[in-house]
Design a protein around this nucleic acid. Structure first.
Length: 337
DNA sequence: AATACGTGGAC
DNA sequence: TGTCCAAGTAT
């Protein structure tokens, strides 16, 4: 959960997950849709899919244990690392963190905080990601024999509090006397990040329908790609790089009196900004939307908690309009989950 | 190596 | 509709 996500954001999700699925076995046995619903709003949804796959691997293939050699010889540290890396979603950082924190091994653990701290302290001025090799070597050179699990956690907290990206607290820093970047007055220029390209715009249309039962029409998105496997309103254009998708009703999941909201909403992703146009419909029947005989969606009680943030935002924009001339029970009653 | 992948908080 | 970034990983 902490991958590219700040601690304060993670805490409620972590507490919910560990309460509902306190063991690897329970997590592996949980329906993936339950995990995805619990993950909704946290972002980077491949993490949730990988977490479940990893739990299934540990439960069914590893006998329920994160096998790790208790002998801490260098060979076994490497073996443990490569073993953990077999789990989907476990990369260099996570494998190192598990090795150090869970098993007390002398692993290399370099997150964004430590990367910043070490690149500054050692004056590593080659760009990321090429600098990662040297930063890893620098970390290796610091590894203590005793309590190796303290090092990454101490460095992360220290860098997060003192060696910050902007306005680092060099005055009074206990490392100021030997920090290469400080001596060269280049602290805030490190680490060297690649130049960021301008974020492109995409345009998409979304279809929000409510039936006479107060249910909305949602579908499960394709298992890979943006918002993979998450619930969402049918749409057209979201995954298309060409900013061309027509704003007409061609992609509607079924025929209805679709009304286009006058104003689009905007949503910012990591690599593009979305301009989302929203079509609305109140339907008296319950159309069975299908393509080639396959049902493409389902009518469900609207529950924002199950939706990724983009879809929550779309629902929040659509709901007042849909409820204007049709009294429908909203989700307030079902929000006490 | 470069890009895809979410979201929200701090300025 | 800004900018930058966060306990990164997969492809």
């Amino acid at each position: 959960m902490l991958q590219q996500t700040v601690v304060a954001t993670v805490i409620p999700y972590f507490l919910d997950f560990t309460r509902r699925w306190p063991t690897v076995d329970s997590l592996a046995a949980a329906p993936i849709d339950d995990l995805l619903a619990a993950w909704a709003g946290l972002g980077y949804y491949a993490r949730a899919r990988n977490l479940h796959k990893a739990a299934v691997m540990v439960a069914e293939e590893w006998g329920g244990e994160f096998f790790c050699p208790d002998d801490s010889s260098p060979d076994n540290i490497a073996n443990c690392d490569s073993h953990l890396r077999l789990l989907p979603g476990v990369g260099p950082y996570t494998a190192g963190a598990i090795g150090a924190i869970a098993f007390g091994q002398q692993t290399v653990v370099v997150d964004g905080n430590i990367e910043r701290l070490l690149s500054r302290y050692f004056g590593i001025d080659i760009p990321i990601p090429a600098a990662k090799t040297r930063i890893g070597a620098a970390y290796q050179s610091l590894l203590p024999v005793n309590r190796p699990s303290d090092l990454p956690q101490a460095l992360m907290d220290f860098a997060s509090a003192v060696c910050t990206p902007k306005r680092p607290q060099c005055k009074g820093c206990c490392l100021a006397g030997s920090c290469v970047a400080l001596a060269n007055d280049i602290v805030e220029t490190l680490p060297v990040k690649p130049l960021k390209t301008k974020k492109p715009m995409r345009r998409a249309v979304f279809f929000v329908a409510v039936n006479q039962h107060g249910e909305v029409f949602l579908h499960r998105r394709p298992e890979k790609g943006l918002l993979g496997c998450m619930l969402g309103f049918p749409e057209n254009g979201l995954s298309s790089k060409a900013i061309e998708p027509s704003l007409d009703q061609n992609a509607a999941p079924f025929a209805a009196e679709w009304i286009l909201l006058s104003e689009p909403i905007f949503h910012v992703f990591t690599h593009f900004t979305l301009e989302a146009y929203i079509y609305l419909a109140n339907v008296d029947s319950q159309p069975d939307a299908s393509l080639g005989g396959m049902t493409i969606g389902q009518w469900r009680k609207p529950c924002s908690a199950d939706l990724p943030s983009l879809m929550r935002k779309i629902w929040a924009a659509a709901r007042p309009q849909l409820f204007r001339d049709k009294l429908v029970e909203d989700e307030a009653g079902s929000a006490a989950r």
